[in-house]
Amino acid sequence: MSENRRGVLDPQWEDELRAGQDADGGQGSVDAELAVVHLLRHAAGPEALDAEGVDAVWSDVATQIESESGFTPWWRRVLDWRVGVGVAVAVAAAAVLVLAPGDDTPPPGETSGPIASGPGAAGMSVTLQAQFDMLAPQARSAIDARVDEGRGAVRTQLLASLGSGADATLGGAP
């Protein structure tokens, strides 16, 4: 009963595990179990661990898991030369996603891509059409913004021209 009340944070666990290992003639390893105990102690224990301590616990757990099961975490498996290629592809894909606005569907009746170019056309025109489909919406927005700026300038000019004669007609009086 008293054993049940004893939490996993009790440092006596470690002593008992070590003692059990010694009783078996030093055979086997209790390091994996101890790593889990350390982790639980960190997660729930009142004692705060500094950054180095946390790293040490995780490193301990990872090492023990690897040594026991032969399992290597995915993030360690991918950290080789292939990660560079993967990152490059991801960046390129992200660039396309960032540059491609939401609605880049060509207007009805106007086709793009392979259909637009016909069966005999080379890939260059297809590629360029795809680039256009990707770049055009943003360019249209930019031109719309310029037209809006122009609208504001015209409005300002009109108000200025009205203002110059407004003193005489303000209030509707001639």
Binding site: P107, E110, I143, D144, R146, V147, E149, R151, V154
Partner: peptide
Amino acid sequence: PDVLVALGQRLDVEHRAVDLQLEKG
């Protein structure tokens, strides 16, 4: 600026008209 505004508005209307014509086939 009035020239750009007039052009932008005219083209906007015309492109929308073309969109509708294409939608109708």
